[in-house]
């Protein structure tokens, strides 16, 4: 026994750690801080989010001010550092403002869908039997359609607009999240520690809120964070098709759509919104990878 005591983080004296209650999240953050790639992605995302939040103070020009004279100026033009679009609006300002809508369209559906889909999935996974059957088969109906097609179909049916776009994205993301939540819950439910919890007299509600949720929330959050990039891309796609955000509002997808016609004249300008979408979704993906390894307690 004594040798085990020695090898187990031997340098720290007993008394120091007694009062310190180490939380799971502290450990996660400690591991994250040692992962340079994830930290870089987090920094880029933080910068994009901050820029989007403080857009009115940061944007050098009015993103909606058109000018027939300075249309499609190349990047590097004094006063318009990233050039102008086909209506002479400042690209930099529009990209900054566009981040607001694009991020909003990326986050909101995923957050709402995580709540709804996660709840449904955990209920289905823990209850099993008929309840599982009812919930999961209903979800399979949605699953039958490709996600982009489903989003287009729903927002097409509801009509263009931000709210309708959000609703369609939420409906698109509920099934995959519920599916992940259900499969993780089913896995956890059959583990010995759930039975052990029952053997120490824990009630059903207590087992779900304590043991099941805490074991399930990690995988669900990780999966959901990878969906944010998908959501940005689909939202951009909806705007591109004229189903999400409508002009003249700035949104990366919408900008990509309108600049598409100018791609032979000003290719760099036309590609810029795409670069923003790519960077943001890439960072979200890499960060969710980093989160997954950081949240694995056994890692």
């Amino acid at each position: 026994m004594s040798d085990q005591a020695a090898t187990f983080s031997g340098a720290i004296p007993d008394t120091v750690k007694t009062e310190r209650s180490r939380s799971f999240w502290q450990a996660v953050f400690r591991r994250l801080s040692r992962d340079p790639l994830t930290m870089i992605c987090a920094a880029i995302l933080l910068a994009i989010v901050l820029i989007a939040i403080f857009a009115p103070w940061i944007a050098p020009n009015d993103p909606y001010k058109t000018s027939m004279v300075r249309r499609l100026k190349p990047p590097g033009t004094p006063g318009y550092w990233l050039g102008t679009d086909e209506l002479g609006r400042d690209m930099l300002s529009r990209l900054i403002y566009g981040g607001r809508l694009s991020l909003f369209m990326g986050f909101t559906p995923v957050v709402v869908a995580t709540f709804i889909g996660g709840t449904l999935g955990v209920i289905a996974g823990y209850a099993g039997g008929r309840i599982n059957m009812a919930i999961m088969r209903l979800i399979d109906v949605f699953y039958a359609f490709p996600s982009v097609l489903l989003a287009v179909a729903i927002s097409g049916a509801l009509g263009a607009g931000i709210v309708n776009g959000l609703v369609s994205l939420i409906l698109v993301f509920i099934p995959p999240i519920a599916r992940v939540a259900e499969s993780v819950t089913t896995q956890v439910r059959t583990q010995d520690f759930i039975e052990a919890a029952r053997a120490t007299g824990a009630s059903g509600a207590r087992i779900v809120t304590g043991h099941v949720l805490s074991n399930v929330v990690g995988p669900i959050l990780i999966y959901a964070s990878s969906l944010i990039s998908v959501s940005i891309v689909i939202a951009s796609g909806l705007s591109f098709l004229g189903l999400g955000v409508s002009p003249p509002l700035a949104d990366w997808g919408l900008m990509l759509n309108t600049l598409r016609q100018s791609i032979y004249i000003a290719p760099v300008n036309a590609v810029l919104p795409g670069v923003m979408i790519f960077t943001t979704s890439m960072c979200f993906n890499l960060m969710s990878d980093g989160l997954r390894s950081a949240m694995d307690v056994k890692g």
């Binding site: 799971f24 583990q191 010995d192 520690f193 039975e195 052990a196 919890a197 029952r198 053997a199 120490t200 007299g201 824990a202 009630s203 043991h211 805490s214 074991n215 990690g218 307690v297 056994k298």
Partner: peptide, 23 residues
């Protein structure tokens, strides 16, 4: 559930899986 743990309690075979890994 009130007697489980207090009146009757149980030790499991496999301590790795019978303890919740995240607590």
């Amino acid at each position: 559930s009130t007697i489980r743990g207090s009146l009757v309690s149980m030790i499991f075979q496999e301590p790795m899986t019978a303890l919740d890994p995240v607590f």
